[in-house]
Design a protein around this nucleic acid. Structure first.
Lengths: 139, 139
DNA sequence: TCTGAAGTTTCCTATTATTGGAAAGTGAAA
DNA sequence: TTTCACTTTCCAATAATAGGAAACTTCAGA
């Protein structure tokens, strides 16, 4: 199987397959005599594993852990669960941050006329004198 | 005001202040005879504006728009509102994506014993044969 | 006035995951 | 044999930020 076919079969671009190999997430692929990478079923499985993990937002480093656990038949499911839970917390943190931003912005938008007049609380907020920072300066 | 003081007063690191200047988000700072950047109140205002916008998740490009609107006394508040609304949609998209990931992962975690045994539905899901991709290949 | 510390300058590097391109080589079919 | 699609490696770019090096400036203390 060439890299192009492996890409189609796994949903990971050829570029990224080479990249994952270069950083050691995937082991060096076998090669044909001419130097073409040759992928076997086992490799495709690993690539799909990676694709799925990526779609769940795992970083390359986390995927590296997951792959190691996956390939260790004697892993404890608690180890896997720990990685997953840590990732959930990470996701929660990001979600919270985005929701906070969204809320603030929503609030500002609600108070903006949104007409031809120039006065706008959104810009007003952005330009507000930040008293807190001044306070910090005097600490 | 030196760059270090400007950094403290605005909450933006000296590195980033130079960066924002280099990409044109901030106009070139005035210079002392020795070549040190000299910041005035007006600059600090702009930097704080940027800091606030950053904290709301606006990208450099969006901030560039907002700054232009801010400095245009005749802007229509509807223009500002449009930028903000577009950003809210962007945030919503990101939030949704993260929540979807979180949900899937939460579901998997719930079904994982999390003990010393090796069987784990999390890895099971990651390693699952992806039938959809095969189907796509035959299109 | 000299000296040293702290601040500043520019330039280069790295990060993360991904995409793009160029130049050269390979595969396969007509 | 030509041609087209594919592959190879290498280099560059993205967005926002951080780190460091070498050279220069400022300023306070001796």
């Amino acid at each position: 199987m060439n890299i192009g076919q492996a890409a189609k079969a796994s949903g990971i671009s050829a570029k990224m397959i080479r990249y994952y190999e270069s950083i050691g997430l995937m082991p060096p692929a076998h090669r044909t005599e001419a130097g073409y990478r040759a992928f076997h079923e086992k490799d495709i499985h690993a690539l799909r594993f990676i694709a799925r993990a990526r779609s769940l937002g795992f970083s390359v480093e986390q995927m590296s852990n997951l792959l190691a656990l996956w390939q260790d038949r004697h892993r404890a499911s608690s180890d896997v669960k720990a990685v997953a839970l840590a990732h959930i917390e990470e996701l929660d943190g990001k979600i919270k941050k985005l929701q906070d931003m969204r809320e603030t912005l929503e609030h500002l938008v609600k108070h903006c006329h949104g007409d031809a007049r120039p006065d706008c609380p959104i810009l007003g907020d952005l330009a507000a004198e930040s008293v807190e920072l001044d306070a910090e300066l005097t600490l």
